[in-house]
């Protein structure tokens, strides 16, 4: 009897511990639910179709944010993500134009490798020059943006139909956007095994205390290069999802770099490194997008959406800091 009670109690305790560790993410989730309810109130016919559109529109920023989260966890920051997306997107759209499905698949594989290469270059430069991450990736922002313009001076190209079909429409149920499934699958396949591996733990170790990590035998340089390379992989996926959702490649970088930094921090990843995950940042992206949609539904000038985004960003973090200092007292 007592044994039964004990086995019953165990998962509850673990769940409570998990909830304590992920208070921030749970808070964001609550915010998301409230926002969804609010959206339904102001727009009574918001339903499956709205959710599908939401899935498609969050995809590029969500992948960019996952990329940013990985680098930030490992103690860096990648300001080149926006132009990396532009470069991978134009390369994909240019190569896919007028080609068959099989070739399109090869292009996707090639673009993913390109992303890994670009990220590895960022990481290798950071490690070998010892110039701060923010400066190196600021400089490579220009390099990738220039290369993107060399590939294609104006928006154009085409995406393989199967790639475009991945970004829109539902799967299984009309409430399940295909884009969201792609997002979950890609992130899960790469991040979950990674976070549990030696390499993933090294990301957190290097991010939280480089010296301690070094003394415990973590190869700092290699870990950083790996973090940037994996971020490059996600950056390429973000670029591909741009191509998939628009059907073309655009050489001018979108606002994704700074937005990804914002979403990462809103998602509970500390800019000091070593803390956070990728789930919180993804929820933050959905929250930010939903706020933007709501301002449209309310007929508010879209420019105020930007204002509201900024206020929420700073406001939520101020709230977090107040709550944290209360808890510390």
């Amino acid at each position: 009897m007592t044994a039964l009670a004990a086995t019953n109690a165990r998962p509850t305790v673990e769940l409570a511990a998990w909830a304590r560790r992920n208070t921030w993410t749970l808070g964001l989730l609550l915010l998301l639910v409230l926002l969804l309810a609010f959206t339904k109130t102001i727009q009574p016919n918001y339903g499956a179709f709205g959710i599908q559109g939401l899935g498609t529109s969050i995809m590029p920023l969500a992948f960019a944010t996952v990329a940013q989260a990985i680098v930030v966890i490992a103690g860096g920051i990648d300001l080149s993500i926006g132009s990396m997306m532009a470069l991978t997107s134009v390369v994909a759209a240019t190569l896919m134009q007028g080609q068959g499905d099989a070739f399109g698949l090869a292009v996707v594989a090639g673009v993913l490798l390109l992303g890994i290469l670009l990220g590895a270059i960022n990481g290798a430069l950071v490690v070998s020059t010892r110039v701060p991450d923010i400066i190196v990736t600021l400089a490579t922002f220009y390099v990738w943006a220039g290369l993107a313009l060399l590939v294609r001076a104006a928006p154009g190209g085409a995406a393989s139909p199967w790639l475009m079909s991945l970004a829109s429409g539902p799967l299984f149920s009309e409430w399940l956007p295909k884009a969201a499934i792609v997002l979950v699958v890609v992130v899960a396949v790469v991040w979950i095994p990674l976070a549990r591996s030696r390499l993933g733990v090294s990301f957190y170790a290097v991010g939280s205390d480089q010296l301690a990590a070094f003394r415990s035998g973590v190869a700092i340089g290699r870990t950083k290069v790996a973090a940037y390379a994996i971020a490059g992989l996600f950056g390429a996926v973000a670029g591909l999802s741009l191509t998939a959702s628009t059907g073309i490649g655009t050489p001018v970088p979108g606002p994704y770099t700074l937005q990804s930094v914002a979403a990462v921090v809103l998602g509970g990843v500390s800019l000091a490194g070593g803390r956070g995950g990728v789930l919180g940042p993804i929820i933050a992206v959905i929250v930010l997008q939903l706020i933007q949609n709501d301002t449209t539904f309310l007929g508010i000038d879209p420019n105020y959406a930007l204002v509201i985004q900024g206020v929420i960003l700073v406001g939520v973090l101020i709230l977090g800091s107040i709550l944290e200092s209360r808890r510390a007292d």
Binding site: V261, L271, N303, L306, G310, V311, V314, S321, I322
Partner: peptide, 25 residues
């Protein structure tokens, strides 16, 4: 409030950009 300078000033840049656009209209 000890919010990271990068984020605070980034957030404010969104606010200023948005308000400037509204002013422009």
């Amino acid at each position: 409030f000890k919010v990271h300078p990068l984020i605070t000033t980034l957030g404010m840049s969104f606010v200023v950009d948005g308000l400037a656009n509204v002013w422009q209209l």
